[in-house]
């Protein structure tokens, strides 16, 4: 296996994916540092999920290369997945199995200790649903189950595609706090995609913006926020600003009324 810089968790070089005459990902160069939270932002169809699928070896690049945790991705090579947790696009599970059984499958196949199933159930607050079949869960709880599966084997790298899908505002705050603590306290690297800036703005250390398969911007959260403020000062009318503040106030109030997750910052 080819080794890359030890401070890099994910690296892509001139990564390309073509589907016939459509280029989904075009000459993508990414470097995600170990221990950071990297927000991968793009509109629907920008190439986020295709990139994530290539990071996980689910699809083969048409060109370029991917390195994950120091190992160059080779088609069919699966050893590094003992160190990687992931959630790709939609939350999925075996619908006829309970939450606990779904997680037990993950435990067995990742060689994790028996207690890891209950630990991940506790971590994602799935206790009341542990004996329920996955097919009977709400979308938000399916998302929690998928996150529990991703975290069960204590990975060094989390690759999350739209992790807030299906979660209510309180759930989003809760998952945000969880990811922040994983990165801050356990040094887990988080690579998360989203099409909503607000979702990554409160969490990511650095943000990359992908558009038409190309990385068009990459900067720290602070730099991006400064650019956004400067842009917004010119672009919005006072009424639009008032409307945006009202939305934030309403969401803060809603969170305050609906649970302890409201303790966290509000998007």
């Amino acid at each position: 296996m080819e080794e890359t810089h030890p401070a890099t968790a994910v690296s892509t070089r001139a990564l390309v994916k073509r589907y016939r005459d459509v280029t989904a990902v075009d000459s993508l160069n990414l470097d995600v540092r170990r221990g950071e939270i990297y927000g991968f932002l793009g509109r629907n169809g920008a190439g986020k999920t295709t990139t994530i699928r290539m990071l996980l070896g689910l699809i083969r690049p048409s060109g370029g290369e991917v390195t994950v945790l120091g190992q160059r991705m080779v088609p069919g090579e699966t050893n590094m997945f003992s160190r990687v947790g992931f959630l790709v696009e939609t939350a999925t599970a075996y619908p006829n199995l309970t939450v606990r059984e779904n997680l037990d499958i993950q435990r067995r196949l990742t060689g994790s200790p028996p207690g890891s199933v209950e630990d991940s159930i506790t971590l994602l607050r799935l206790g009341p649903y542990a004996g329920r079949r996955a097919g009977q869960l709400s979308l938000g709880n399916k998302q929690r189950l998928s996150l529990a599966r991703a975290l069960l084997h204590s990975p060094e790298l989390l690759v999350l595609d739209e992790p807030a899908n299906g979660l209510d505002p309180a759930g989003i705050v809760e998952i945000r706090d969880l990811l922040r603590s994983l990165a801050g306290e356990r040094g887990v690297t988080v690579f998360m995609s989203s099409h909503i800036l607000a979702e990554v703005a409160h969490l990511a250390d650095r943000i990359g913006i992908i558009h038409n398969g190309r990385l068009i911007e990459e900067s720290s959260r602070e730099d991006l926020a400064a650019k956004a403020r400067s842009f917004a000062a010119d672009a919005y009318t006072p009424e639009e600003r008032e409307q945006a503040l009202l939305t934030l106030d309403l969401e803060r109030y809603f969170l305050a009324r609906t649970g302890e997750a409201a303790k966290g910052p509000v998007a």
């Binding site: 699928r53 996980l56 070896g57 689910l58 069919g76 699966t78 050893n79 590094m80 997945f81 003992s82 990687v84 992931f86 790709v88 696009e89 939609t90 999925t92 599970a93 075996y94 619908p95 993950q106 196949l109 990742t110 060689g111 599966r149």
Partner: peptide, 14 residues
Amino acid sequence: DATAKNMLALPVAR
């Protein structure tokens, strides 16, 4: 069931 992606990115030879 869209679980193939979960199955194929595990530390198990496919």
